[in-house]
């Protein structure tokens, strides 16, 4: 029987366990509401390195190391690393794993990278092509500002719709085998590129919300599910603006998601105390929220059916300067305690 459902979804037949996760965050995230759930909170954003980019790679390396030590697996047991970030040419990931003797797939999905990585990892494991896969995604506020916006010390104002790039890395180890009860990836819905003509790079929530809406709709129809099947549906980094837009788009279809829908960008910061405007963003936003907070809730069975939907805005500084609109993407991962 085919495992592919509808246009975009896959339901896994073989178990894909998330056997462990690890997370590292920067000092600002460490002062946020989810601080207690992270493995490592950095005392400073440079992490002992001399540039933001090197710091990001160090964070990636250390978090992968943490995930391996928590899982008690050695490097030889990992068949693939699937990892990505926001830096040019994915250097955050590739430079981090130079010393690791593990086959590597580097991916770019902007801030949806964790979702893309978990999807590909789950497909590989269900297909029997791997036993254990290390998945991760990272971002660094200072490195992102430098690459996508302005130098840090420039005295500019942020608009109320702008989001704050999360510094950190979230890792997860996917496996076909476990000794203890672990949450399983049961289905995925792979997003399409959706571009509704938003050009404001300071309103990425609005650019990505249609992609999240499209993927969620595809997920529900491909797999014949209602939104209330899930204990929690959580998007990656739409922030307050994007979250509100998704709710409105569903309400136009007479569907109410307000009871069980949230966004990692809303949870990770306290917007009033931390001056983060519309919320958190970046690859690490969904990655650390999942690896820290959501995984703990799944393990403790406070959540049993989670739909994790990392979202990405696929623009580059060049495309923005050329006046291009911002294409969005969202990948849905169904994670359940079975």
């Amino acid at each position: 029987m085919s495992k592919h459902f509808g246009r975009q979804s896959v339901r896994f037949e073989n178990p894909v366990y998330i056997i462990t996760t690890a997370s590292t965050v920067g000092p600002k995230e460490g002062e946020g509401p989810l601080a207690e759930f992270f493995d490592i909170i950095l005392p400073d954003s440079l992490c002992g390195e001399d540039s933001w980019e090197k710091a990001e790679s160090k964070i990636v390396k250390d978090t992968f190391g943490k995930a391996l030590s928590k899982s008690k697996l050695s490097q030889e047991n990992i068949d693939y690393i699937i990892s990505g970030d926001l830096l040019n040419q994915n250097s955050g990931s590739t430079f981090a794993i130079r010393d690791m003797d593990i086959p590597f797939f580097g991916i770019f999905g902007a801030c949806s990278t964790m979702g893309e990585g978990m999807s590909l990892g789950a497909l590989l494991i269900d297909g029997g092509f791997a036993n254990n896969i290390l998945v991760g995604a990272s971002s660094h506020f200072c490195a992102s500002e430098k690459q996508f916006r302005f130098p840090l010390e420039l005295g500019t104002q942020r608009t109320p719709t702008s989001t704050w790039t999360v510094t950190g890395q979230g890792s997860a180890i996917l496996s076909n085998n476990t000794n203890e009860k672990c949450p399983r990836i049961t289905a995925i819905t792979t997003g399409k590129i959706i571009d509704m003509g938003i050009t404001d790079a300071n309103n990425m929530g609005a650019a990505m919300a249609p992609a999240a809406f499209d993927t969620l709709n595809a997920h529900f129809s491909d797999l014949s599910l209602n939104p209330d099947y899930y204990d929690l549906i959580i998007t990656g980094d739409l922030g307050y603006v994007g979250h509100d837009l998704v709710l409105k788009m569903f309400s136009e279809k007479n569907m109410d998601l307000s009871k069980n829908y949230s966004d990692c960008g809303i949870l990770i910061f306290d917007k009033d105390k931390q001056d983060t405007n519309s919320g958190g963003s970046g690859c690490a936003c969904s990655a650390v929220t999942f690896a820290g907070y959501l995984y703990k809730k799944l393990k403790d069975e406070q959540l049993n059916k989670l739909l994790f939907v990392p979202t990405g805005a696929l623009m580059s500084p060049t495309s923005a300067q050329q006046g291009e609109t911002i294409p969005g993407i969202a990948h849905a991962i169904a994670i359940e305690n079975i």
Partner: peptide, 29 residues
């Protein structure tokens, strides 16, 4: 200066100090 800029906006961008900031900030970065 960036902390001042958060509140001041154009108030700290337009004067010559803002121009100095706009050269020094990328030089540092």
């Amino acid at each position: 200066y960036d902390e001042i800029g958060k509140i001041a906006g154009a108030g700290s961008v337009v004067p010559i100090t803002g121009f100095a900031n706009s050269v020094a900030a990328p030089a540092l970065e």
